[in-house]
Nucleic acid binder design. Structure first.
Length: 823
RNA sequence: GCCUGGGUGGCGGAAUGGUAGACGCAAGAGACUUAAAAUCUCUCGAGGAUUACCUCGUGCGGGUUCGAGUCCCGCCCCAGGCACCA
């Protein structure tokens, strides 16, 4: 409350405040009820802040790159620019219908070249800092969308957008090194006290940091013929010599495992490599494995298995032993078998594990299946057997009795391992083989034979930004893993030269310096624009800078950011990553972009099911506004549940809100003497203001209803009437405008008198033996003794205590609230 | 399996450890009306007494406390996220 007092005193200075809601993808369907809920909430919040004297920045715009527009374009042969414009205009029309108080003069869109110029510029900076690189590793390929996808775009093993099973496909990609920011993305969550803990958990979980050790295991060959020779060397003359020679040259190698439980190293009874592990193919190539065919068969099976196949097998752990080799446990030099198994993932940790079946459930399951030894090395010393944190080492001589944590370090040190951190988060696959996205500011040199030399990329000079998307006739992806842009000769082939900054500048073909280059044909993913859009919102018409210094200093961070939870692990991680990067290169002043984050709950269809086209239960905001008016629509959506809760649409409840606003219209007739209940207005001002701050719009509205009930019954003064209208204004702007115009009212938030909030009389509840028995009235803040003596005058006390000849053991008085008689 | 969030009337939902069910919807009764709609008044957790009283009641079982929807322990169920992460 205290920080809100800035409207007093210096009138000319208004404290800046940035209220942002997640901008929308302008679909052909128009706004849905979910939009109405978030946007109305942020609008009420913004209006309230404005009334309290803040200089509120409340912008909107569109995230208009993306597949649906492109698919529409493919089908109808129209450039997505056109359909996108049409849809955005419809969205804006609806937003205005809803009386959302955005700054409509500064609406911008990610597809605006003046916008994506800066998206390209940021990419350039990432590239310059070594945070953008090309990769040919197998990536997730959606055969239906015909494009590569980031891990974040998958649901299980399915394309998040179309539900197709994705394949792994090696494809040239641009990748951003988000993993380099993984620690900061986790650690800096601690600097965000206004974020909900569960959202932070979601992000931590997604990034998935685990701290552990990397330990080398020696791999030695153990040819079957060795044991054969040893057994038979006495008898088989002439055969032994050659084998001995071969043994001397025998294969020796090593591999690195990752573990978070280095303390259990002594309990390792086998090791597992991912079937895809490089060492496995090397062993096969060098003919070290005795059961080569079996191993190859298993590897092939793994390749063909999708994640769905695997889980349908109940995640039973299967694997194949690599016959002929053994791994040496560096802690005790024990030789243990080596397996390959698909429960070890190639792209996490080092793709190899030490298995400790005694202390890991998965390893135990596997060991039991293949009859591998299980060796206990930890003992629980806690009284509470469920507390696994109090384990000490046993069976290791050297380290006996050490606690788990100490043992991790000591053992890692002993075996010359490394303490390392690993993440689930992968680098961000930042290229799509599609038309409707930001082109990369990249060209490639051309080989003598005319082919593109992808090893020689050059950044396009700033003066040539934006690299504009060309107009094309066909938007269909090639399907060969290239974007449709690859076929547009006029776009792809470009003459120019490399300037002093080692950047590409185009020039005329006839220019002496002119050489042919080829443009990058991939485009950026839809997440690119949304990773920084709120910064462009500061200054969308600035055609020389991303935003002016003055603007970023005024609004260095978003004060409150409202949107859907579904963005917690993608947009909000990408956005934080880019913002941190921009901080590192001195563009923005903070380490975190969003000071307070609030997530909206779902608006479900009647009966509590999701609204969907298939079920035909979609409620169209336009229809509701037409039938009931804007204010009823806004207030009903706010009243139906708390902001972060989800609840079902109920057409009948909607008419209750209409009743409320109708009654407000006729409240004017009750103006006269001040309300008998002198506290009502002040209580309401306090409650509504506080609830808006907490986004508890449902209880704010209920307080307005309580006030209305009171005023209808007991009348109200003109002053009370005007204050009531002001409180209503952020919720029901149309009603406010209509009713306030007779009074020449200022649109400011009324103040309350804290001394008037509380009644002089309070109701004390009487509890006898812990049960409620009645109440009595007494002056506020009376001493406990007075409360007790008043209590003893009560009939209820007589009935339960005096007349029963009971002597209370104790009487507990809670000031202004309750007395409890303990008997 | 792991991590979150949640479970309160017929429904949406209120309750800094202090009168459970605010506010609203639906339902019932009544008033107005030729009638209906709208509007207004009253009732509305369950059971029993039927005047103003008692008993039970916030997913289940324990516990802490003068007092628990709220805190602790153990379960069950629902929703979301992650998912063989070593």
């Amino acid at each position: 409350m205290n920080q809100d007092n800035n409207q007093k005193g210096n009138k000319s200075y208004k404290k800046p405040y940035y209220v942002l809601d997640m901008f929308s993808y302008p679909s052909g369907e128009g706004l849905h009820m979910g939009h109405v809920k978030v946007y109305t909430a942020s609008d009420i919040y913004a209006r309230h802040k404005r009334m309290k004297g803040y200089e509120v920045l409340h912008p909107t715009g569109f995230d208009s790159f993306g597949l649906p527009a492109e698919q529409y374009a493919i089908k109808n042969k129209v450039n997505p620019t056109i359909s996108t414009k049409k849809n955005s205009d419809n969205f804006l029309r609806q937003m205005k219908d809803l009386k959302l108080s955005y700054d409509y003069d500064n609406v911008t869109s990610t597809t605006d070249p003046e916008f994506y110029k800066w998206t390209q510029w940021i990419f350039k900076q990432l590239y310059k800092k070594g945070l953008a690189y090309q990769s040919h590793e197998p990536i997730n390929w959606c055969p239906s969308c015909k494009t590569g996808l980031a891990n974040e775009d998958l649901e299980g093993n399915l394309c998040e957008r179309c539900g197709s099973v994705v394949e792994k496909r090696p494809l040239r990609q641009w990748v951003l090194k988000i993993t380099e920011y993984a620690d900061r993305l986790i650690d800096d969550l601690d600097t965000l006290p206004e974020w909900k803990d569960w959202i932070k958990d979601l992000q931590r979980n997604w990034i998935g940091r685990s701290e552990g050790s990397e330990i080398d295991f020696k791999l030695v060959s153990q040819r079957k013929d060795l044991s054969f020779v040893e057994r038979d060397s006495i008898g088989l003359v002439g055969y032994g010599t050659s084998i001995e020679t071969e043994l001397k040259n025998s294969y020796e190698n090593k591999f690195t495992i990752f573990t978070t439980r280095a303390d259990t190293l002594f309990g390792c009874t086998y090791t597992v490599l991912a079937p895809e592990h490089n060492l496995v193919s090397e062993l096969i190539k060098n003919n070290i494995i005795d059961n080569r065919d079996e191993v190859l068969k298993y590897i092939a099976e793994t390749k063909n298995k999708t994640d769905i196949d695997r889980s349908s097998e109940g995640k039973e752990k299967r694997g194949v032993r690599l016959e002929g080799v053994l791994a040496v446990n560096p802690a005790n030099q024990e030789e243990v078998p080596v397996y390959i198994a698909d429960y070890v993932l190639p792209d996490y940790g080092t793709g190899a594990i030490m298995a400790v079946p005694a202390h890991d459930g998965r390893d135990r399951e596997f060991a039991e299946k293949y009859n591998i030894a299980i060796k206990e090395v930890m003992q629980n010393v806690s009284d509470d057997k469920t507390d696994s944190s109090e384990e000490v080492l046993i069976n290791s001589e050297e380290f006996d009795g050490l606690s788990s944590e100490d043992a991790k370090n000591k053992i890692t040190e002993k075996v010359k391992g490394k303490v390392v951190k690993k993440y689930k988060l992968r680098d961000w696959v930042f290229a799509r083989q599609r038309y409707w996205g930001e082109p990369f500011p990249i060209v490639f040199a051309v080989n003598e034979d005319g082919s593109t030399d992808y090893n020689k990329p050059y950044l396009v000079s700033d003066v040539e930004l934006p690299v504009k998307l060309p107009l094309v006739e066909s938007y269909e992806p090639t399907g060969t893993g290239e974007s449709p842009l690859a076929d547009i000769e006029e776009f792809i082939n470009i003459y120019g030269y490399i300037d002093d900054n080692n950047e590409f500048l185009s020039c005329d073909k006839t220019d002496k310096r002119a050489k042919i280059f080829k443009r990058e044909s991939n485009t950026m993913p839809q997440w690119a624009g949304s990773s920084w859009y709120w910064l462009r919102f500061l200054d969308p018409h600035n055609n020389t800078e991303m935003f002016s210094r003055e603007r970023i200093e005024k609004y260095p961070e978003v004060d409150i950011y409202l949107g859907g939870v579904e963005h917690a692990t993608r947009h909000l991680i990408y956005g934080r990553f880019w913002y941190k990067f921009l901080y590192d290169i001195g563009i923005v002043p903070n380490i975190e972009p969003f000071k307070r984050l609030e997530t909206v709950g779902l608006v479900l269809g009647e009966g509590g099911v999701k609204m969907s086209k298939r079920l035909g239960n979609i409620i169209n905001p336009d229809d509701i506004i037409r039938e009931y008016g804007v204010d009823v629509t806004r207030m009903y959506v706010m009243f139906m549940s708390p902001f972060d809760g989800s609840s079902a649409w109920n057409a009948k409840s909607l008419s209750g809100m209409k009743r409320f606003l109708d009654r407000v219209q006729s409240l004017k007739n009750k103006i006269g003497n001040p309300c008998k209940n002198v506290n009502m207005m002040d209580q309401t001002i306090k409650k509504v203001g506080e609830d808006i701050e907490l986004l508890k719009f449902n209880t704010a509205i209920s307080q307005l209803m309580i006030a209305l009930n009171e005023f209808e019954e007991n009348g109200l003064s003109l002053d009370e009437y005007q204050k009531f209208l002001q409180l209503l204004a952020p919720f029901a702007p149309v009603t406010f405008e209509k009713l306030s115009k007779d009074y020449n009212m200022e649109e400011s938030w009324p103040e309350y008198d804290i001394n008037k909030i509380e009644n002089n009389q309070v109701t004390i509840a009487v509890q006898i033996a812990g049960k409620m028995r009645g109440t009595f009235e007494i002056d506020r803040d009376k001493e406990d003794e007075e409360v007790v003596s008043k209590l003893k005058e009560q009939d209820i006390y007589n009935k339960y205590i005096t007349s029963q000849n009971i002597e209370p053991k104790k009487i507990i008085v809670v000031r202004n609230k309750i007395v409890n008689v303990v008997i």
